[in-house]
Nucleic acid binder design. Structure first.
Lengths: 246, 246
DNA sequence: ACCTGAACACCGTTCAAGT
DNA sequence: ACCTGAACACCGTTCAAGT
């Protein structure tokens, strides 16, 4: 008997009343979106969903961000800032420990935070390479330390780049693995299985500890390889005994 | 004066006439989709767009694939098969050259084919690790060769895994870099630049040759690191003499 | 059995107001 | 100036036929 049909999905929460003028701002939207993504993967975040979560009209978001892309960029900026802040200071006694600790922190921090991982890793590769380091003092310190250890600057940058790619690759592979978790098609499992190498033993559910052990293996291997490229080529001037370098 | 308004977008090409019974099949759809993606990135492929390209009703696709996901899986299966076929046989005289050639081919093949890269790299990480190799004979050959060279099986698998992660990481970073190419917001360029390490000199347009040189650096470094883990530890049998653990 | 347009619930974004 | 619902063009998918 009703005259016009309003589909349930179309009318955003009818209880909500018009908000007063200054009741939201860009920062609130970003932090709200971050909070929303503690529950839902960023890729599934939707403007209407976010608006409902924030208790605003969808259109209001567009007053502060002219597109979803721009909002995501702001979230990324945010994630990047807190990520950089939470990276511990460098402290290894030698360049090898410094490198290892840096990238282990890098990995650990992002592996523990799904949203930060999605945002930061996705963004990281997006910019030019050379000027990248300049904007992050911790990274620049690392390069300086490598230079002090005897690496020519271009070698130091390549070393950093290699470790960075490996770490990002590890995170990305872990992430996409998590997402598409259980693949639907059992008949398609033939060529589908590929390259990925081979985890220790666990067939499917890779334990957190084991993933980290696998990560460490790569870092250790790369650092061992870098040792060879040191111009002085002292390699590791006594076998192991001392527990390694100095 | 027309009685009903049909929006232009809604009526799929009006010239097209109903197709006869057996005029399409799953294989045609997959190969058509692959052809379509020579022009458009997979991520932008749309069911209506694909249908128009194939000159079928959208719904017809759903007769053969019950979802877009399933179609993409079929395309991936396809890409994986031709990718495996085009991997050249192993031939390096030693394990080091074999590893290097394998992963350089891996990289080169996928770097040259946007679609294959998107599909294969995305899929690769999706499956369990251990059984992955078993399904690809070339990979299994490699592991056998590593075993012959003296690597214990679990070490061989970890070595393979590390190189694989690095290669995938490199491809992914290159790919996402290409996609979001020119970022919209110049003011956001601050913390946005991060980690990525530092390409030789080119500010933005990374030359193909330079990317490949960067890739090679990482492969070489990792292989050099692996040399140290050989149990016999002949390393390069002079400077280090005793070598390390055991 | 195979092919199809209309329709549905959703999305990102814009328009044209309301305050 | 800031907040808003209605509307638009699109998407993936399903329905209810047509042949």
């Amino acid at each position: 008997m009703r005259r016009f049909h309003v589909p349930a999905s179309a009318k955003a929460n009818p209880k909500r009343r018009r908000r007063p003028r200054g009741s939201i701002n860009a920062a609130d939207i970003v932090s709200g979106a971050v909070e929303f993504c503690r529950t839902t993967p960023v890729d599934d975040m939707t403007m209407p969903q976010l608006a409902a979560f924030l208790n605003v009209g969808v259109t209001s978001i567009y007053w502060y961000f002219k597109s979803k892309r721009e909002l995501l960029d702001a979230m990324t900026e945010d994630a990047l800032a807190t990520f950089c802040d939470s990276m511990p200071p460098l402290r290894g006694p030698g360049w090898e420990d410094m490198l290892r600790e840096f990238f282990v922190s890098f990995y650990t921090l992002l592996a523990a935070d799904q949203l930060k991982c999605d945002l930061v890793v996705r963004r990281i590769s997006t910019e030019g390479h050379t000027r990248a380091i300049r904007s992050w003092d911790r990274a620049e310190q690392l390069l300086t330390a490598l230079a002090d250890a005897g690496f020519p600057p271009s070698l130091a940058r390549q070393a950093f780049f290699t470790l960075s790619i490996y770490t990002q690759g590890f995170l990305l592979v872990e992430r996409t693995g998590r997402i598409s978790g259980a693949i639907t098609s059992p008949p398609a499992a033939r060529a589908a299985d590929l390259v990925t190498g081979g985890a220790p033993a666990a067939p499917q559910p890779v334990a957190a500890g084991s993933a980290s052990a696998e990560f460490d293996f790569g870092i250790t291997t790369i650092i061992a390889g870098l040792r060879h490229l040191l111009p002085g080529d002292l390699v590791h001037q006594s076998p192991v005994e001392g527990g390694g370098r100095r």
